[in-house]
Simulated scan of single mutants.
Amino acid sequence: MDLEPGQAVPAVPVPLDVEVQVAYDAYLAEEPDLGPMSLEKLSVIRAEVDAAVAALEDLSEGGRFVVSQPSVPGLDGAPEVPLLVCTPSGAAPASRPALYFIHGGGFYCSDHRIGLDQILDTAERFGATLISIGYRLAPEHPYPAQINDAYAGLMWVADHAEELGIDPERIIITGSSAGGGLSAALALYVRDNGGPRLLGQLLIAPLLDDRNDSASALQMDDVELFDRSHNGFAWSSLLGDAQGGADVPQYAAPARATDLTGLPPAFLDVGSAECLRDEILAYADRIWQAGGKAEMHVWPGGIHSFDRKAPEARISRAAVAARCNWIERLLAIN
């Protein structure tokens, strides 16, 4: 290809990992009408989520976990926040670590009781209590409903640590996609407004930047399901007309934070073939520049939530192993 002097090289999409591609093609064959995200599609997605919740039969996973579902006070008189608390049946009776999990779904869908198989396996491996939070959804409940609910739930967990049998000094906040972004925002919020000393933040393909204009957002547009259209819909649901403007708060979009000092150690990962890649890389780089601790993984050929779409793929197994390795090292020194 011959380029004129000064002409930019066109962005070529990153090829998908072979095993991920096979799983993604199979998914597309079952769900051919993907296209841009819309309010009409949102109603269909939410109906599917409701059906999945209704089909839940045994939250204890056949007795693997002791389960409770408290509802805790919302922040400043807001509605109560539902939690799902799952403790491995063979875990220590007290002073357990805790994984405080915030679900994904673009801020606008999903539920705190579904899609927990991977994080439950992780909790069981480390004898940790999993607390999954059900926050209010956008666009009906825009920012700051989500971060307020996440903070209210975390404060209740810390205040009731003895009752829950957990060590309030060993709480790791975690989430994927929108939940990863909310986890990053929660770390900032706790730093600035008080709360438990968080042991770490495990951020899996987090949504961090409402501007949706990075090189990877443009490069990978229309390549996979969660593309620039879906990312933009997520942020417009959360922020409305404020999206992309000058005054978006850091507790909505953590990439807007000007100060990343004083945060708990972070683990971040992302696929090389997803639109969020560059904003996540930039966030990790800024944590390092601020003198913080961050571990960053870019999985070659991975798309958004590749570990969920293709759990048996080699890069999916490697990604899960890397996250567990980080947790193991974090717990070993704390």
Rank of each mutant, 00 (worst) to 15 (best):
V66G: 01
A98D: 04
F101T: 03
T129G: 02
V248Y: 03
L238T: 10
Y24N: 15
A11T: 10
V14N: 00
P311V: 13
E162G: 05
S132E: 00
A205K: 03
S229M: 07
L59S: 07
V223A: 07
S183Y: 03
R136G: 03
P15S: 05
L182E: 06
A253N: 05
G62P: 08
F101R: 08
D25H: 13
I119H: 09
I287W: 11
G244C: 07
A255H: 08
I114M: 09
L263G: 02
A284E: 02
I131Y: 04
L154I: 08
S177E: 00
G35K: 13
V20R: 04
S236P: 09
D247A: 12
G165A: 02
P97Q: 08
Q69I: 10
V22Q: 15
W299N: 00
L28P: 04
G134F: 08
Y24Q: 12
P300L: 10
E40C: 07
Y27C: 05
Q146H: 11
L56T: 08
P79T: 12
L330E: 06
T174Q: 04
S305L: 15
E140A: 15
F306M: 11
G200D: 08
G6H: 12
Q289L: 13
D285I: 11
A150V: 14
S43E: 12
L120R: 15
M37P: 02
L238W: 01
L188G: 07
R125E: 00
S38G: 11
E312L: 13
A184L: 10
P10G: 12
I114D: 03
V81I: 13
S60P: 09
